[in-house]
Simulated assay, not measured.
Amino acid sequence: MSCSKVLSAVFGATFSLALISSGMALAAGSHVAGHGMMQEMKIGQPGDPAKVSRTIEITMYDNYYEPESLEIKEGETVRFIIRNAGEFVHEFNIATAAMHEAHRPEMMMMMEHGVLEPDRINLEAAKAMQASMGHGMHDEPNSVLLEPGKSGEIVWTFPEHADLEFACNVPGHYETGMHGKVKLSH
């Protein structure tokens, strides 16, 4: 069995056990599938900190977020303070459901290359993956990836008429409930 398959099996078993039993000042990279201006416009854009209308605190646990959904005004600029209170690496990513689905294979690849370990981000593995594949950790303004106990921040301006959600795309996490709706209002 390859090292990546062993790591995947161990991570899956560990995560499942944690879910059953629970019923880096590094915002080290963030990412979104389908990079580019058209995708960014569809989901909003990085916000100007001087135009923030409010701050929302997000706490990530091992199979859910608190709060579980968000109500945002169209065009509103929000500062998110995100804290990982779980035992595993988690992501807070603002995108469409289709973008999250497209992004999950990338996150699986990061796990298979040892970048994402259950409870830490392996920056040496990220550098090796970047050197060998031209792809590793990214820094996208709509997302933050955090180790347990760490916090990060996103300032985001929301679009009009979008069907958005926030989610964790670490393998297996979305499927166990780590996603929530963003309800946009006028």
Rank of each mutant, 00 (worst) to 15 (best):
Q130K: 14
G152T: 01
I154H: 02
L123F: 11
F158K: 04
L123Y: 15
P141G: 01
F166Q: 09
S151N: 11
G149S: 12
A167D: 01
G149T: 14
S151H: 07
H173T: 13
S132Y: 05
P148D: 12
G136E: 14
A125E: 13
K150I: 13
A131L: 11
E140A: 09
C168I: 00
G180A: 00
I154R: 03
G177K: 02
N142K: 07
E140P: 08
S151R: 11
V170Y: 11
E124T: 10
V155M: 02
T157L: 06
N142T: 03
P141T: 05
W156N: 02
V144M: 01
P141D: 05
I154P: 01
V144T: 06
S151D: 08
Q130A: 13
E140I: 02
A125I: 08
C168S: 05
L123T: 14
K181W: 01
E165H: 04
H135K: 14
V182G: 06
M129N: 07
A125Y: 15
G149Y: 07
G177I: 02
K150V: 14
G134N: 13
T176V: 11
K181Q: 05
V182Y: 02
A125D: 11
H179R: 12
M137P: 05
P171G: 09
T157W: 01
A128W: 12
H173R: 08
A125H: 15
E175K: 05
A167M: 03
Q130R: 04
K150D: 04
G149V: 13
H173M: 03
K181N: 06
W156L: 07
S143A: 14
H179L: 14
D163H: 02
M129L: 13
M178T: 05
D163P: 02
V155E: 09
C168W: 00
M129K: 06
G177N: 01
E124H: 11
P159A: 02
L146A: 06
H161A: 11
